[in-house]
Design a protein around this nucleic acid. Structure first.
Lengths: 242, 242
DNA sequence: AAGTGGTCTAGACCACTCT
DNA sequence: GAGTGGTCTAGACCACTTA
């Protein structure tokens, strides 16, 4: 049996959360079937029921489990990963889809901000932003053209080589910022000549345009990003709850 | 001062949640500023700190508040509504955007299911589905063409007149089902001649195609819906968290 | 050092569902 | 009636941040 180490620095509720998660993965807990009751978990691992609830709450919030009053807690029947509704970088998204991401930096320069960028990033009108344009590949096919604007002073230590890899990684590891939320607008457009050439498609072909503003956990916007995805190769997936 | 009624059937944590929510609304609690500490709330309302945490947890999950270890709990600066990430019907969505929704039913018939429908709705291959095709208007402009498939037996009491209104309303009020989650795929396409005529646009114009499967709280799929939105008039908005 | 959120306990009573 | 999740209490110790 998977055990819980009460002396570990890892919180007990998190250990239990991982145990349940893994048992769903390996089929010990079956989709649509009830998991052990909260009191059973508390007895089994000799922990408080409130701690059990904390673990289960997180999984319910993620949509992996659902509760039925007076009946029990059940594994959500759909096994599709919720992971796509999470805020991910392009690289993380592609890896989730089983594809190999790659990037090529086309532009890496400082530019004065226009009104839209200034407003999105909450910058002064006369300030400068770092502008990065990248072709994003998946399994060596061009998947998207991505134009990012970030506050220049925040990104002063970012090297173009890092931009070929992952900017999110740089922000989280080097700047120690917590990336937390993003606001996105998605719309359908058609490719103009320039975009078509970059994406290796034809003029007039459909393109999924995503505008994203990304915020740290303090609510500070640090990136405005405009992505043009080749519609033939990419669809956007999300989950909604009522 | 807003009070908490301990004898009310309304849970205490929910009463506190509503108090905090309203104080954010009316500006008593300012964006970016700290709210009272958990211990202060507990003392103020003479309730347990765990109950306070339960109220705050919900608001943190919704993104209205955020916590900083050792520092306090703060109001998220962004005032944008989270409402668009919720599972809404077309009508609800349009009303949120300040537009007046209207529908016209083009097709209302029973059809044998094909493989995609059967798989999406978890139906047998020889069963029938109710197929409804509707033009969706916003402020009298055609916004989308929507084709829905639902299990025929489940929808046997649905009248075409109700479909002009809201099918979600019928499901929730008449069938007493809880609509809970939806899985969506969004992609960009271009309008063919037929679609262009219906949407009052030109052939080759961009169209946002949304495929949605909607589930009840028991995880049972009850609707497969394919919507073609006029890209000039509609963009999809969502929020992501890491 | 004082205050904050993070974690945890060992109980309790309630409304609900199922048999 | 037995079992379930929903709510709630009154403490406790911890790591962290700020002054």
């Amino acid at each position: 049996m998977l055990m819980i180490n009460k002396n570990s620095p890892v919180p007990i509720y998190y250990q239990l959360e991982e145990i349940i998660r893994q048992q769903i993965d390996d089929g010990t807990l079956m989709p649509g079937k009830a998991i052990p009751s909260e009191r059973e978990y508390a007895e089994l691992y000799q922990i408080s029921r409130m701690t059990v609830r904390q673990a289960i709450n997180k999984l319910v919030n993620e949509g992996l489990l659902y509760r039925k009053k007076g009946t029990g807690t059940f594994v959500q029947p759909k096994k599709v990963e919720q992971v796509f509704q999470k805020l991910t970088s392009f690289s993380e998204d592609m890896i989730e889809r089983g594809l190999v991401p790659k990037s090529k930096v086309l532009t890496f320069e400082h530019v004065p901000v226009n009104d839209l960028i200034a407003k999105s990033l909450k910058l002064e009108n006369n300030s400068t932003a770092l502008k990065i344009v990248r072709i994003r590949y998946a399994d060596d096919s061009p998947m998207a053209i991505e134009t990012s604007y970030m506050p220049a002073d925040l990104m002063k230590d970012l090297q173009p080589e890092q931009a070929e890899e992952s900017i999110y990684e740089f922000i989280e590891k080097n700047l120690q910022l917590k990336i937390q939320t993003a606001y996105q607008e998605l719309e359908a457009t058609i490719a103009d000549e320039k975009l078509a050439n970059l994406l290796n498609i034809s003029e007039g072909d459909p393109v999924l345009l995503i505008n994203r503003i990304t915020y740290t956990s303090d609510g500070i916007p640090f990136e405005f990003c405009q992505s043009s995805f080749c519609a033939y190769r990419y669809r956007f997936i999300n989950y909604l709850t009522r």
